[in-house]
């Protein structure tokens, strides 16, 4: 219906478009066009850089900005200390980068910049991106696990106290659940981001459609839907933070498996 009217296509917001005529850039035959997705990665990176640089004043008595940055590093540090223990300290740069990059991407994608003609693009709503980040976390777990415990790392798949006859079955089950981790990690973020943005887009098409259908429909359908959109927007801000947190939390839990095998 909406697509027929050519007004609001809820999926259009996820379209990747090369910018600045770079669509023929390529390295070794692979296309590396600077797209709107890359643009928003750059924006997230720059905003994150400005945010962290602002907290780098290294004052003994911190200002507000420094306090904010320190609370984020302290949060990630605490997360790793709680889930991995003292060995988690060395993963703070990685988990911090992951958490903040995803958080800033999610929140920047929710900004109502469409009002001033800039269309935010949430690159975490693409499984290519979330998948790469998940594979990155998963490979760290594999590399650390096998480097630290050698083949003994396979004992991760046999919980303590498993009866001998059950070991082959449990091993297969645990192995499958382990191998599913990168998919669940990447898909969770992708789905949560995409669902929220589609929902907002669909609701906005209700508002536009009902208002176009007449003042009565606009009042009866448009205004309640708009109020619902405000509430969902607040929920989406929460989801943006929670999904970044979940990604960092699960990464630290998986790192814990690799660091402290049982």
């Amino acid at each position: 219906m909406a697509a027929e009217q050519g007004k609001v296509d809820p999926m259009h917001q996820f379209t990747i478009e090369p910018l600045f005529g770079t669509d023929h850039w390529s390295i070794a035959g692979y296309n590396v066009a600077f797209t709107n997705s890359a643009m928003w990665m750059a924006v997230a990176t720059v905003v994150l850089l400005i945010f962290v640089a602002g907290g780098l004043k290294r004052q003994l008595v911190p200002g507000r900005w420094q306090m904010a940055v320190e609370s984020f590093t302290g949060f990630v540090d605490g997360l790793l200390a709680a889930n991995v223990g003292p060995a988690g300290k060395k993963y703070v740069p990685y988990v911090f980068s992951l958490f903040m990059f995803i958080l800033f991407a999610n929140i920047l994608g929710l900004l109502p910049l469409g009002i001033i003609g800039i269309h935010p693009f949430t690159f975490t709503s693409h499984f290519t991106i979330t998948g790469i980040l998940a594979i990155l976390s998963f490979s760290i777990v594999l590399i650390v696990g096998f480097a630290k415990h050698k083949l003994h790392f396979f004992s991760l798949f046999i919980p303590h106290g498993t009866p001998l006859v059950m070991i082959p079955l449990i091993f297969v089950i645990e192995l499958v659940s382990f191998m599913v981790r990168p998919f669940s990690l990447g898909l969770r973020l992708f789905v949560a981001m995409m669902a929220g943005h589609v929902l907002l887009e669909v609701l906005s098409s209700f508002v536009i459609g009902s208002a176009n259908a007449g003042a009565g429909w606009g009042l009866v359908v448009g205004i309640p839907t708009f109020l619902l959109m405000i509430a969902i927007q607040a929920l989406e801000l929460l989801v943006a933070a929670i999904q970044a947190y979940v990604f960092a939390l699960l990464t630290s839990l998986y790192i814990n498996d690799a660091e402290n095998l049982h």
Binding site: V92, S97, F101
Partner: peptide
Amino acid sequence: SSQIFWLVVFFGFVFFVIGRGMV
């Protein structure tokens, strides 16, 4: 390929400059 390339570029920058350098 473009998605992966730019993610590696920008997340690499975030990790090495912000994560390793500033944090």
